[in-house]
């Protein structure tokens, strides 16, 4: 089984082909990603209209390249998948419409994939793990802890009540005058800094529900920064280190609480899975590694290239759904909001 996957929900245009071998493992046959970082850098964040304009200029060329690199013709595919949301609607429409048109002309089934579900299932592509598992999904747009019980069977245990973690990293970078995208920049600065110089809060630490809140931490950081401004390089590094340490402590605590909730409702997880762009943060990975070990679990975090948005995860989610017969018709809607819980088989 071979599926083409398209991803256009934010600022990466991506197309990839993934195949499924007889032993049930997935293989990435091609994986094209075109980042729009340069287009958005001046704005310090993703501008939806600029993103949509960029997607429509390049998506067909990326599809062509993904097919060439996979050594396949469109007619040799078994399905065509696209992220149908959640995300920036202008971009989602471009990717989904492209997939629909390819499906119509080739006569192949369309799979309208939930972007979050694709992140959630990536660990099965990379490591072939079995259900159920606990997923920490943390990116620039999403932060949630999810019990992944099966394809289309997700229970959200907790989520952020304000900013996503990646969004908070980006806002901190902007505040401190670091380039966009801020996540890797803050991480780099934090390496040089003293995480204990500033006493920053750990919001919701110890609360019984595994939710997140980032806005208070962000405000505390701003107050500290304004108090000592103008900032030296040392100050910036220390602020970044303090911020990252606070986020890591919070994530570990919230994930520990979610593990407890998981065991009460969904039994024993096969693994702790981290996904999304924030899972690329090495300090966070090490902390999650420790948590997994002390919980008797394995941490599965995708390679860096598959942490951010990519087409391979969409193609893989397409395979997972297609082999269960979960396909969509040409009127499938593009959705700005689409909770993971609403990805089950449609009646």
């Amino acid at each position: 089984m071979r599926v083409l996957g398209l991803e256009t929900t934010c600022d990466e245009t991506a197309a990839a082909v993934v195949s499924l071998s007889d032993d049930g493992r997935g293989h990435i046959r091609s994986d094209e990603i075109l980042s729009q970082i340069a287009e958005h850098a001046a704005y310090g964040g993703v501008v939806p209209e600029i993103a949509a304009r960029a997607h429509v200029e390049v998506i067909d060329r990326l599809v062509e390249r993904a097919m060439d690199n996979a050594g396949l013709a469109l007619s040799e595919l078994d399905g065509i998948a696209a992220a149908a949301g959640p995300g920036l609607i202008g971009g989602v429409i471009v990717g989904l419409t492209t997939a629909k048109a390819l499906a119509l002309v080739t006569g192949k089934p369309l799979i309208a994939v939930n972007h979050l579900e694709a992140h959630a299932l990536t660990a099965r592509l990379t490591d072939g793990i079995a259900f159920p598992y606990l997923l920490l999904l943390a990116s620039g747009g999403h932060t949630q802890l999810v019990a992944v019980r099966g394809v289309g069977d997700y229970v959200r245990l907790g989520a952020t009540i304000d900013d996503a973690i990646g969004e908070a990293f980006d806002k901190v970078a902007k505040l401190l005058g670091l380039p966009y995208p801020g996540g890797p920049e803050v991480e780099r600065e934090a390496l040089k800094g003293d995480p204990e110089r500033f006493a920053l809060p750990r919001p919701l630490l110890g609360r019984p529900a595994p939710d997140f809140s980032l806005s208070g931490l962000k405000t505390a950081l701003r107050i500290e920064a304004e108090r000592i401004a103008p900032l030296s390089e040392r100050d910036v590094s220390d602020l970044c280190a303090g911020f990252q340490a606070a986020v890591v402590d919070t994530v570990v605590d919230r994930t520990r609480v979610a593990l407890r909730a998981f065991r009460e409702t969904a039994g024993h997880p096969t693994a702790l899975v981290a996904a999304g762009g924030v899972a690329a943060n090495q300090t966070l990975r090490r902390a999650l590694e420790r948590l997994a070990r002390e919980s008797g679990l394995r941490l599965v975090a995708p390679p860096l290239r598959l942490c951010g948005d990519n087409g391979a995860m969409i193609a893989w989610a397409g395979i997972e759904r297609l082999r269960l017969g979960l396909v969509d018709d040409l009127s499938a809607p593009a959705r700005a909001r689409w909770p993971l819980e609403e990805t089950g088989p449609r009646p």
Binding site: E49, T98, K100
Partner: peptide, 19 residues
């Protein structure tokens, strides 16, 4: 309409590619 014209262009380009 920005969104509308992108729907048509995305569809047309993909149809052209596949056909």
């Amino acid at each position: 309409s920005y969104t509308g014209l992108r729907v048509g262009i995305a569809a047309a380009r993909a149809i052209g590619l596949a056909a």
